[in-house]
Simulated assay, not measured.
Amino acid sequence: MFKKVLVAEDFDGYNIAVAEALKALEITNTDHAPWCDEALLKMVRALEDGNAFDLLVSDLSFKPDHRTAKLTGGEELIAAARELQPDIKILVYSIEDRPHPLQYLFNELNIDGYVLKGRNNIPEIRKAITAIAIGEQYISPQISHVLQDRTLHEIEEYDRELMKMLSEGVSQAEISLLLQNRGINPNSVSSIEKRINRLKITLRANNNVHLIVIAKDLGLV
């Protein structure tokens, strides 16, 4: 079981749930940071002291305040934590349930577990930490299907940029010029039209407006 845990969470109610789960697992060496920058600083100091954290529990969304922050969200904190301490185990505890952000967390940031925030989460947090401690991956059952959905693997960064510009009201002709100015290919109007049509087929969208609605629901834009 984990010996030293850092919790990055800015809402006391959710922090209490994590604290209760850790207490039930008899993990007493814990620390808390309400801001991402503070969490990373605690990790740095712990490494320097030769007493590193072995589990990071983090939210994804942190409410901004008057402080100037280098790390503004959980994804940035997790990426920085992975770079600083590649072997640290990471459990995300958040309300985010859109497929693309979840797949990014597991596939790109290599998190070890994800608990979807809700009522009576203490038993599930305890279950997730126990699974991660023995080398297993954990994801809340109600969103576990997200990792099996291969549809989003067909969506490239180029596609996301196209949909982002469409969502901002940019016409296909204007998109073509913008891509040309950035040196991005393909950039012809016909190529862009074909790509958008392919996206509509992939995401089962009836038209461009429907495509953007679906893309937003999936967290692609």
Rank of each mutant, 00 (worst) to 15 (best):
L162R: 00
L162Y: 01
L162D: 00
L162A: 00
L162Q: 00
L162P: 02
M163Y: 00
K164E: 04
K164V: 03
K164H: 06
K164F: 04
M165H: 01
M165K: 01
M165Y: 04
L166T: 04
S167F: 00
S167Q: 02
S167Y: 00
S167C: 03
E168C: 09
E168H: 07
E168L: 06
G169C: 05
G169S: 04
G169D: 01
G169E: 00
G169L: 02
V170L: 07
V170M: 11
V170N: 05
S171W: 03
S171P: 08
S171K: 09
Q172C: 05
A173M: 12
A173N: 11
A173H: 07
A173T: 13
A173C: 02
A173Y: 09
A173F: 10
A173W: 03
E174H: 05
I175E: 02
I175Q: 08
I175W: 00
I175S: 01
S176R: 03
S176M: 06
S176A: 12
S176C: 07
L177W: 08
L177I: 12
L177N: 09
L178H: 11
L178E: 11
L179P: 07
L179T: 09
L179C: 13
Q180S: 15
Q180G: 13
N181D: 14
R182I: 08
R182K: 15
R182A: 15
R182P: 12
G183S: 14
G183P: 09
G183D: 12
I184G: 10
I184Q: 09
I184L: 14
N185T: 12
N185S: 15
N185R: 15
P186G: 13
P186R: 04
P186S: 08
N187H: 14
N187K: 13
N187E: 12
S188H: 11
S188Q: 15
V189I: 15
V189C: 04
V189Q: 13
V189H: 10
S190V: 14
S190A: 13
S190G: 03
S190E: 14
S191C: 07
S191V: 07
S191G: 11
S191K: 09
S191D: 11
S191H: 12
I192M: 07
I192E: 07
I192H: 10
E193T: 10
K194M: 05
K194N: 10
I196C: 07
I196M: 06
I196E: 03
I196Q: 03
I196A: 03
I196H: 03
